[in-house]
């Protein structure tokens, strides 16, 4: 196979990964890593480097729209980014000492968790009582809905912050946005309305991924030949996905995809267990 053929196939694969990642809400990076390692037999470290870039591109591209609409809670994002960036740098440092097979197994586990998270019940309730810390940190805010501005207040700020630090470590270690963990921290722990937690999580993913991407770039994880088709492909796919989302409800697709991702996760874990990475 020549470089040209490889690039074109990878571009198409990354486009599909971006499309599926955007329709299901999992993010393109999560789909790109198994695609590169299981299908193209690329070393998982190159896959992680490319996936991080895809996460930054997706997050920044989508965040620009949400920030403008005023759904994103920027103060909350900034505050939690302390946890995610420190975690991400830590994760990138641990990554050097972690065998690639262990990383693959861990990735499979997170993949399973993310799939389960996408089909769970979403938090639409709005808390009217906030914890003392939420007032001190000025985290309570409002967001636009069909029925006008809705105010919400936050609970368990400390616990949410801790889960965010863990999300940061996993993001740095595995090269993914770990959006599922971020939403878990905000949605289930801090009781933030689903729409706000998703967009704020997305807003933070770019910064979190950049924190570890800087370390990985210096370590040679970013290969131009892989980064080029993956970044452009995922970005294109995510863009198509966001356009499709306004016209269709991907509920059925979500379930089908969650089953598929379970098999992929099982294969990552199986291969990692058998030291194939």
């Amino acid at each position: 196979m020549t470089i040209l053929t490889f690039t074109l196939i990878l571009l198409a694969g990354a486009y599909l990964a971006g499309l599926v990642g955007s329709l299901t809400g999992l993010g393109g990076g999560v789909v790109v890593i198994p695609l590169l390692t299981l299908v193209f037999h690329v070393d998982i470290r190159y896959a992680i480097g490319a996936a991080l870039l895809a996460s930054i591109a997706n997050s920044s591209g989508a965040a620009s729209a949400y920030v403008k609409e005023g759904i994103t809670n920027i103060r909350l994002g900034m505050f939690l980014e302390i946890a995610t960036t420190i975690g991400a740098v830590g994760g990138a440092v641990i990554a050097v000492y972690t065998p690639t097979n262990t990383i693959a197994i861990l990735f499979g586990a997170i993949l399973l968790f993310s799939a389960a998270m996408t089909i769970r019940k979403k938090n639409q309730e709005v808390s009217t009582e906030g914890s003392p810390l939420s007032y001190k940190l000025k985290l309570n805010s409002s967001y636009p809905t069909k029925d006008g501005e809705v105010s919400y207040k936050l609970k368990n700020v400390g616990a949410g912050f801790s889960i965010m630090a863990l999300a940061g470590v996993l993001s740095g270690l595995l090269g993914i946005g770990s959006g599922a963990l971020k939403v878990l921290a905000m949605d289930s722990t801090m009781h933030i309305p689903f729409k706000v937690s998703t967009t704020t999580s997305n807003f933070m993913i770019g910064v979190t991924a950049a924190a570890s991407a800087v370390v990985y770039l210096q370590r040679g994880y970013m290969d131009a030949g892989i980064a080029f088709p993956v970044m452009l492909g995922v970005l294109g796919g995510a863009f198509t996905g966001s356009k499709l989302l306004t016209r269709m409800d991907p509920k059925v697709l979500k379930y089908i995809f969650c089953v598929a991702i379970t098999f992929v996760a099982a294969e990552m874990i199986f291969n990692g267990y058998n030291h194939k990475f």
């Binding site: 870039l53 930054i56 591109a57 920044s60 900034m78 910064v207 950049a210």
Partner: peptide, 12 residues
């Protein structure tokens, strides 16, 4: 790639 990584950093 560097410009992409710099984008969220510049946002901060």
């Amino acid at each position: 790639v560097v410009v992409l990584i710099a984008t969220p950093i510049l946002r901060i």
